[in-house]
Amino acid sequence: MSTVAVVGAGAMGEAIVAGMLARGWQPADLVLAVRRPEHAEALRESYGVEVTDAVTAAAKADVVLVGVKPYDVHGVLMQIGPRLRPDALVVSLAVGLTTAHLESALPEGTSVARVMPNTPSQIGAGVSVISAGASCDDAQLGVVDDIMSAVGTVVRVPEQLQDAAGAVSGSGPAYVFLAIEALIEAGVHLGLPRTTSTQLAMQTFVGASRLAAETGEHPAVLRERVTSPGGTTAAALGELEARGIRAAFLAATRAARDRSTEIGG
């Protein structure tokens, strides 16, 4: 297995570390870099991994995952670039930043890949969208696939579709949480106790998602099976359509995609 450095082991970085260890990587295969000493000590105690500074971590690794905020990425790459191994692969987890932008801060010819994970990765149920930079070959992208598979499903897309994919899956959990929140509040307004409404809404989303994923049937087919002509569900869906639910999702994902592009610029 490759030696992997995780520079910026926040919530997502730590989730990846935990997933990798659960999938068979050894603590010796990993080296982490974080800013706060207390966080470093907690990571050592939890996972038995080496925690050091970014430059030292990067110099030891075949693959360097950069999990810092987008506005910190350029500075981190400028720091670690001179110490990278000649055949190192640098993987960015930052939204919006193109591989060309990443490559511009690294030694010429450095292999780069771009990943957009989402928050369900914290429980091993995420989806990560990955794209290769100019010098990243299929074997190296396969390593990225192996790493991100430790926290869920991996989807490869051409880089020009990264911002669009992130608008669906990267931001997508927030849309789902908002829908759950709205359904809970609706139940409360109908007279349900909040605990009961919460339980009903949560499990309905879990069950519907599992049904769609496990049957592989188109969501429209599954929706039609719930919707009896002239029934309660038909009445409810009529209200959602009248209030423009499809147009709202289209506008929301376009806004997310455009904001990702702005961040990258």
Rank of each mutant, 00 (worst) to 15 (best):
R254F: 04
L97H: 05
L30F: 08
R243G: 12
E50S: 14
H74V: 12
V144S: 02
G238P: 08
D138N: 09
A9I: 04
Y71R: 14
A59I: 00
T204S: 15
A9M: 05
A18W: 05
A179F: 14
F177D: 10
A201Y: 01
P70F: 05
V49A: 02
I123G: 00
V115G: 01
T233Y: 06
D145C: 11
S135E: 13
S135A: 13
L32F: 02
G238A: 10
E262L: 11
E185A: 15
G264M: 07
H39C: 05
V188W: 09
V168A: 12
D62R: 11
I130M: 05
Q199Y: 07
G142L: 06
E103L: 09
L211T: 13
A11G: 01
D53K: 03
L77I: 03
V6I: 15
G166D: 06
G216C: 12
P193D: 06
Q160I: 03
R254K: 15
T253A: 15
M1E: 07
V129K: 04
A11Q: 14
R225A: 09
F177K: 09
V51K: 00
S104W: 08
L32E: 01
G10W: 08
I180P: 01
A94C: 08
A42K: 12
V34P: 01
T119M: 14
L192S: 07
L211S: 13
R83K: 14
T253F: 06
D163C: 11
A212T: 15
G172D: 08
L106P: 00
A139Y: 04
T119A: 07
V206A: 13
R210Y: 10
G216S: 11
Q79A: 13
A22W: 07
